[in-house]
Amino acid sequence: MEIKLVPVRPEDKGTLINLYQLYEHDFSRFTNRDIDKNGRYEVNIDFYWEGDERWNPFYIEVSGTIAGFLVVLFENMDIDPDPTHVIYDFMILQKYRRTGIGRAAAIKAFKMYNADWAVTQMENNTPAISFWRNVIKSFKEDNFTERYRPERKKYIQELSTKT
């Protein structure tokens, strides 16, 4: 089983928007977001391709089939020559969950860039907190930090892949 991170091209934006519908559906139990009158979640990702190089969307492919997506954000790239890289969005389709694909994709993303990283989860999204703690611990052993930001109600894991 070959797992790849494939950059999403602007002409493939429609497919990514469709995947975001599934992401927002899954995530709505934590965000309480509702669909609009057309039965869809409002999603705008045009800015990913409007000259702002901070946004880096990837499909997660398994043997050539899309199994999910992730977005890497180069945080504060406009003011920091060495920006922190953030896993901004991450989604694995239900069929592929608990198979190791998400873990492998996350680690591939970390290895793609020689950078400091941050991964954030909402405090009520306990499955995501558990997933990221396990992935990062298996990847970096105890060489990472975690903090809780009560004002944002978020957990943040920070690690580095700098050599």
Rank of each mutant, 00 (worst) to 15 (best):
N38W: 09
G100I: 01
N114H: 13
T31P: 00
K137M: 07
K154R: 14
K154Q: 14
E141W: 14
D36Y: 04
K137L: 04
E151D: 15
F131S: 12
Y23F: 15
F139T: 11
Q121Y: 05
F69P: 01
A106V: 08
D142L: 14
K153E: 12
K140I: 10
R152K: 13
L19M: 08
E42W: 08
K111L: 09
I60C: 02
N125D: 06
M1R: 04
Y20A: 03
M1L: 13
A115M: 12
I136H: 13
W55D: 01
A104G: 02
H25T: 09
L16W: 09
S28F: 00
K111F: 04
W55I: 02
Y148D: 08
A67T: 01
I3W: 04
L159F: 13
A67S: 05
K154C: 15
P7Y: 06
E2I: 13
K162Y: 12
G100Y: 03
M112I: 09
V6R: 12
T163E: 14
E158P: 08
M91G: 01
D89A: 11
F131A: 12
K154T: 09
F90S: 11
Y41K: 09
F58E: 00
T145A: 13
W49P: 01
V8D: 03
A104P: 00
Y41C: 05
F69H: 10
D116T: 11
I45A: 01
V71R: 02
F58H: 01
N124S: 07
I92S: 04
I101K: 00
I136D: 06
N125S: 04
S130N: 07
K153Y: 03
E42I: 11
D46C: 05
V62G: 00
R9M: 12
P83M: 09
E53Q: 05
R133S: 08
